[in-house]
Nucleic acid binder design. Structure first.
Lengths: 331, 331
DNA sequence: CTTTTTTATTTAAACGTTTACATTTATATT
DNA sequence: AATATAAATGTAAACGTTTAAATAAAAAAG
C-alpha cells in the first residue's frame, strides 16, 4: 500500500495525497476529508525511505554516548527523545566506549547523511575538529563541551557548583577539605577542580596538592582517593567528589576505617544518581537537571537543523545541591 | 558526489560502479581497480537512503528496552551492536518506559519498514500479538520471552538458577529461606519463584506464602520485603532476591536492624550488576551472560532477516552464581 | 574465419515520496 | 457575459541506488 494506491482509491493524483499527508493548505476541505478516511481505512503510512530520498533528510538524529553503563544518561536521553519526537525526529543511540575510532565511525554517519544531526555527550577529538564539524553539520555538545570549540552546548556551571559546596563546608567550620576527581572528562573536571580551588582561596585557605587526587571514576578510585586524602595532616573533615561512584567508594573506605560518614567526616557526590539513596549513609550530591539538559540540547540542535548558519549558543542550566546523611556534620 | 558522478569520472555506467561497490564478481579486475581508486580519491560513500529505497531494506534493527535506567541492559546492547555491525546492521535503541502505547508505537516501526527487525527486551502485549508479529517480521525476545508466544528467544534458565541457589543454602544448613521477587516481568519472575518453591519441596521443606513477597524492583521494595520476611517465625536465615537492587534494599534494612548480613543472614541478588561490589557487604548475585545474550539474540534475528519462515528457536544460556560477602554464612 | 559461448558492460526501469510548474476549476471583478 | 484572479488539482521530474534485460566485446570452438 503506497501513495499511488491511495491516489487510485481516491481518484486523485499522488500530489494531492501527498499534500494531505503534509498538511498543505492548498487542498479543498472535502477532498482532504475523503483522503484522510481512505488513508485511515487502509492504515496507510508513508514510506519514510522514499520521503527521505526526496527531501534529503533522514529525520533521525544521533545521540553519542561515551558509555551506556551510566545511570546518568538515561534521563538526558529521555529529554532528547521526547523533545525530538515532537518535531518528528527519531533518535539513534550509539556508544563510543571512549574509543576515538568508534567516535569517528559514528560521527561519519553525519557525513553519510544517515542522520541529520548529532547530540554528543562526550568527545575525544580535538576542538578544531569539533568546530569544523559543527560548521557543516548540526551538532550540539551536552554536559561536556570541548574547551575552545566553536559549537552549541548545554551544561551546568560545574565550577560554581563545587565552589558553593566547598563554601558551605567552610561556613560550617570545616578547615581541611579534600577533593576526589577524575582524569577523563576534561571540561567538567577542570571546572569542578577550579571551583574547589577558588572556594578555598576566597576563604583564605591554601590549596594543597595532596588533598586533590585524580584518577578514574570507578568505585575503587573513590576508596583509593579517600585513603590518600586521609593521610593528610591535619585530617580532612570533608571530601567533595566528582561523581557518586567516587563518593560511594570513599564512604565505604572511610567506614571500613572506623569513621562515621556524616558525623566524623562529610562526603559530597556528584550527579545525584539513584544509588545515592540506596546506601547507608545516604549520599549527598550535586544534581544536574538531566531531563532539561537533554531537552535544551535538542532545542539547540533544532535551530541548527533549521539553519546550519545560526549562531552557536552556550546554555548554562541550574544545578541543585542535595544534602543527605553523608553531609550531616558541621565542625 | 553520487554514483553518477563516479561513473562519469570513470567513463563507465552507474551499473558497473554499483557492481564494484557490491562486490559483484561480474566486473573485470582492471575496471574494478580503476573504480575503487576513483571512489577512494573522492571519498565517495553510497547514499544509504537511495539504497534502502531500492532494496527495500533499512539495514537497521530496533532494540526495545523497558527502561534505560538499568545497568543490566548496557552490555546486552553491546553484544547486539557488535554482532549486528559485522552483518552491516546499525541498531536503534528505543525505550518504552513500560508503557504499552510506547511499545506499540515503536513496534510500528517494523510495519513502517523503518527497521528490518527488532530485538525486544520486554513486552507488555499479549502472546498472540507477539506470535503474529513474529510471523510477519523478524522479531526476537531477549531475557523475557512472552509465555506461550511462538517466537525466537534467548534467556537463561531462571528457574534452575534460583533452584540451585536455594539448594546451596539448604545444603549449608539453612532451614528458613525467604524470597523477595517483583511483580512485573512475568516470565523470569515466575521461573525464579518456581525454582524457589521446587528447591524447598525437593528438600522436604514446605513453602510458606509469607516468606515470598512480591512488589516492584526498587530499592525500597527490598527493604519492605525484608521487613515482612523477618517478621516470620522462625526467623529466616537466608533471602534470595529477584534483583540486585532488591538485595541491596534488603541488606540495608537488615543492617539497620542490627543484623550482620553474611553472618546472621545471607542475601543473594540477581543480575550481578556493578553495584554488587560497591557496597558493604558486597552482594552475592546470579550473573547472566549479558554480552552473549545480546549476541545470540542478534544471531537469531539474523536467521529471520534472511528467511522470515525459518523455524523459531529458543536458546538457553548458562548463568553463574557468584558468592560474595553477603552469603558468607552457613547455618 | 565464422559461429558459438562466455564475460563484461550498458540501458532503463523501479523503489515511494515531494514539489515546481502546468492546468483546470471555481470565484470575484468589471 | 467576459475577463481576471484565486484555489484546487494534476503532471512529471527528481532524489540515489540496484538489477533485470539487452548489448557489446572477448574468448573458445568449429
Amino acid at each position: 500500500m503506497n501513495i499511488k494506491d491511495i491516489a487510485k482509491k481516491c481518484n486523485l493524483s499522488v500530489a494531492t495525497i501527498s499534500r494531505v499527508i503534509n498538511n498543505d493548505p492548498k487542498v479543498a476541505d472535502s477532498t482532504r476529508k475523503k483522503v484522510l478516511s481512505v488513508i485511515d481505512k487502509y492504515k496507510f503510512v508513508p514510506n519514510i525511505t522514499g520521503r527521505s530520498l526526496r527531501t534529503q533528510k533522514s529525520n533521525k538524529i544521533l545521540v553519542l554516548l561515551p558509555t551506556m553503563s551510566n545511570q546518568f544518561y538515561s534521563e538526558i536521553i529521555q529529554g532528547i527523545e521526547e523533545t525530538a519526537e515532537e518535531k518528528g525526529y527519531a533518535i539513534l543511540v550509539a556508544v563510543t566506549n571512549l574509543q576515538e575510532h568508534q567516535e569517528i565511525k559514528y560521527l561519519h554517519m553525519l557525513r553519510m547523511k544517515h542522520v541529520d544531526g548529532c547530540i554528543s555527550l562526550f568527545n575525544t577529538i580535538d576542538a578544531e575538529s569539533i568546530s569544523s564539524l559543527a560548521k557543516t553539520y548540526p551538532f550540539v555538545q551536552c554536559c561536556e563541551p570541548t574547551m575552545g570549540a566553536d559549537v552549541s552546548s548545554v551544561e551546568i556551571n560545574n565550577r560554581q557548583a563545587v565552589y558553593d559546596v566547598v563554601n558551605q563546608f567552610i561556613q560550617k567550620g570545616h578547615k581541611t577539605i579534600g577533593m576526589i576527581s577524575g582524569d577523563y572528562y576534561k571540561t567538567s573536571e577542570l571546572g569542578r577542580e577550579t571551583g574547589y580551588k577558588e572556594a578555598l582561596r576566597d576563604n583564605g585557605l591554601v590549596f594543597e596538592k595532596s588533598l586533590l587526587v585524580k584518577n578514574f571514576y570507578r568505585y575503587e578510585d573513590g576508596a583509593i582517593g579517600a585513603k590518600k586524602i586521609m593521610a593528610h595532616n591535619p585530617k580532612p573533615t570533608a571530601i567533595v567528589c566528582a561523581s557518586d561512584s567516587l563518593a560511594l567508594g570513599a564512604t565505604s573506605y572511610l567506614k571500613s576505617e572506623g569513621y562515621t560518614v556524616g558525623k566524623d567526616i562529610c562526603v559530597m557526590g556528584f550527579d545525584n544518581t539513584a544509588i545515592t539513596t540506596y546506601t547507608s549513609p545516604t549520599i549527598s550530591s550535586i544534581g544536574q537537571p538531566r531531563y532539561d539538559l537533554g531537552k535544551e540540547s535538542f532545542k539547540l540542535l533544532y535551530e541548527k537543523l533549521e539553519n546550519i548558519n545560526s549562531t552557536n549558543k552556550k546554555i548554562i542550566l541550574p544545578y541543585e545541591i542535595i544534602h543527605r546523611e553523608s553531609t550531616g556534620c558541621s565542625k
